[in-house]
Amino acid sequence: MLNLILDNRFAIASVILFVTGFANMMLHPNLIKKIVSFNIMDSATFLMLASRGMIAGRSAAILTDGGADVTRYVNPIPAGLVLTGIVVSVSVSAFSLALVQRIYGAYGTVDMRELLEAMKKKGE
């Protein structure tokens, strides 16, 4: 049992992180914390992906004087996917932060519940 947990420690950690991020994103009323939760959720998927591509004892897929012997390198595709994923997640975070700033300018709050009340008061 312990071995099973140890073998899958990255997968378990990423699932816990994913669920944490997901639940907070659904339930937390604070918009900034929602964005943080989104980043936790995305990081969990990157952890999962990076750990899947890792093979113990091998190095990153950068050609050195050792030549192109495939048994010496890890799979480079997950790393490429993580990079793409990070770019996506950074741009989405930037967009949401900009949006939250505009909302704060319009209503003076970043709390979803207060926001809906403020909208009701304004009759929107």
Binding site: F95, L99, V100, R102, Y107, L116, M119, K122
Partner: peptide, 11 residues
Amino acid sequence: GPTLVATIRYL
């Protein structure tokens, strides 16, 4: 205002 709030919920 309302479109901004609608956007963040959508997002």
